[in-house]
Write a protein that binds this DNA or RNA. Structure first.
Lengths: 391, 391
DNA sequence: ACAGTTTCCCGTAAATGC
DNA sequence: TGCATTTACGGGAAACTG
């Protein structure tokens, strides 16, 4: 009778953090004229680890002009003391919860108790749990046709590559203007299914492979690796990702094949396979005396690195030094043959970080006057940072 | 009868932030044997802007072994709705509050109500109010002999340079291992009193000059400028400040006088006069063909800058480039004549930022195995960032 | 329009729990 | 002892409010 819209976490609905406000909307699919009467909705949550809704538990539905639907907003989900008698084998990001909504429709002729539940949600206590929580939501919604199977992760079924690849690509297109292309997806398929599988659409991927890793292995589960990269793109690479200048996912073999035979100084950008929080590296090709191609990759740039210098600026200023040699920038053409300034020139800035956005010199003029300092103003020598490797 | 120790904010007691825990201790100066009986203390706060103490309002004093004093801890000061009928002309960092402590000593022979108050405190709602709040606390405690004059800042008296200079120097020695020397203090005196005053110990400084600026002036009040520098030192310059390698406070005239005649490439470090959050610049001297000294200063390095490259590393790698010329590092001797590596060498690192602390290469080895990738491992080319100016 | 003030909430660090 | 989970709170940004 009613269909709940989802509680919202920016970009990641169905994941809720304790202590952080969220919004739930429910709307009636049936346009009863009686809905003009005030319908009071009560919300509550299952008490597995004993969360509670703090704030207004009950709200009157009011008509939303835009959609003609009825909206209610609830704030602050807060965890209370744990129940001692409940133990779950599931880790927090696999523990599914349900929001309940109840109301009573009282009419002269009838009196009905109505109730509806949300899709399963994951409750987290820290943002660092968000990636795995979102992984769970993805897996559940790919696979589970039941509206609320809270024990889904006790034995989660595998997913076909055909399904997963769509979801992965959608993760990129929902955060950026560019989805994954078939080449990129193929690289990911090789990683998940093995190279022999040839990207078989019917190939099955296990939940553990996707998001957990078996306990004896240490390392980064596939989804957390991808999510780190998504975050890196969102924060620091949006423009050049949208432009399609990041090949991104590429096996070493493929990389070597692509670059071999290209002009010396041809480079491409791809993501680190191992950086926990996303990293991007630059690989370029040069040729030895006998014409043998040789590729080099810089240590991947991470979020921290890109916070102080943007990737276009790295590319613009990257310098190789060697004793007795003149420093050079080995990066000349973005693969296949785009002169680097054509691709990245519009993103070069001399303002490498925020602090430099303040026009210091003007500031000096203003402030020295105010501070009653009447010395002549000597402008500062501007500076920039560049990325350097020693050969 | 009892003397309250102060609520603690790390490094800045007497400033309390809403929503953040703090601790108050009170101790009895009189060692009554009767104190073995349980003394229940109640704490409360004046209700000017209507704050409340959240948590346990009342606590039993218990004996502290170390000092034999009685301690109580209270947590979470939380603001409630403002009272509408109270208006104060004071801004929040000038609004003084008092904590009250009450208890009843009930003995067979007598029954006494005891009460005591804290020194005035400042309540803030955001850390960005901490510097001015601490400025208020300093000013109050320099000048006010009355235990709690809550309207002190309606008309705060001026302070003698003699008093203020001690307090300023103490701010540095309490955060670092090095107080301000007389030369540094003299520079600050010139700034506050004017050069003509000759650092007169009797010279008076107004509250407005120290911490506010009159409304029509825009700019950075003296104390906020100093506090930004203190913070910069604490975060990024502690070692070289402790070593005494930062002259820091220096007029342009004095700077020029110091550097003239020194070897070319002699440099010194001093703080920006204008950066809101603290900045430090490097000034070096060179000589034109006719032997005329010429000094250059780099745009000051801020917290953001120094988060990605340490000042010793800047000094080590700073590069001046010019078309057709070989890039050089113009920094050779720390004033007066210390070869830069002697002063800063021990602080050079190739790890310019945190992300590089992870030993990527080892990681690669480990993780590629786990991820079942059996490609040969090609180590990445290491990199560093350097600071460059174009001549 | 705006500045002083507060709230929101991410992300590092530390504490806590198992 | 180590890992999973939670709490603490600084700090950037947005929201609020006179």
């Amino acid at each position: 009778e009613r269909q709940p819209c989802m509680p919202t976490h920016p970009q990641r609905p169905l994941v809720i953090k304790t202590g952080i406000q969220f919004t739930v909307k429910i709307r009636s699919l049936v346009k009863l004229p009686e809905l003009n009467c005030q319908l009071k909705i009560k919300v509550s949550i299952d008490k597995c680890r004993k969360f509670n809704i703090l704030g207004t538990f009950s709200k009157v539905l009011n008509l939303e002009e835009s959609s003609g639907c009825l909206a209610a907003e609830f704030r602050h989900l807060v965890r209370c003391e744990k129940q001692t008698d409940i133990t779950t084998p599931l880790i927090i990001s696999e523990e599914l919860h349900i929001l309940h909504f109840e109301t009573q429709l009282i009419q002269p002729e009838l009196c009905v108790d109505l109730s509806i539940t949300s899709l399963p949600i994951v409750v987290i206590s820290h943002v660092n749990q968000l990636p795995s929580a979102w992984g769970s939501i993805l897996w559940y919604n790919i696979l589970c046709s039941e509206p609320h199977n809270l024990t889904f992760f006790l034995n989660p079924p595998p997913v076909k590559w055909e399904q997963l690849s769509k979801v992965l690509s959608w993760q990129f297109s929902s955060v950026t203007k560019r989805a994954l292309n078939s080449e990129q997806l193929r690289t990911l398929a090789d990683k998940l299914l093995g190279h022999e599988a040839q990207g078989d659409p019917e190939g099955l991927i296990n939940w553990n492979t996707f998001c957990k890793m078996s306990p004896n292995e240490r390392g980064l589960p596939f989804w957390l690796w991808i999510d780190g990269i998504l975050d890196l793109i969102k924060r620091h690479l949006l423009n050049i990702w949208n432009d399609g200048y990041i090949i991104g996912f590429l096996s070493k073999d493929r990389e070597r094949a692509l670059l071999s035979g290209k002009l010396p100084g041809t480079f491409l950008l791809h993501f680190s396979e191992t950086c926990r929080d996303g990293g991007i590296t630059i690989t370029w090709v040069e040729y030895s005396q006998d014409g043998e191609p040789k590729t080099h990759s810089v240590k991947p740039y991470t979020k921290t690195d890109l916070a102080s210098i943007s990737l276009p600026n790295v590319i613009c200023s990257y310098t190789l030094t060697a004793a007795e040699k003149i420093p050079v920038n080995p990066l000349i053409y973005l693969y296949p043959d785009i002169p680097k300034d054509d691709a990245f020139g519009r993103y070069y800035t001399s303002l490498d970080d925020l602090s430099e956005k303040l026009t210091e010199t003007t500031d000096v003029n203003n402030q020295l006057q105010k501070m009653e300092i009447d010395k002549p103003i000597k402008p500062y020598l501007d500076r920039r940072i560049i990325s350097v490797s020693d050969e």
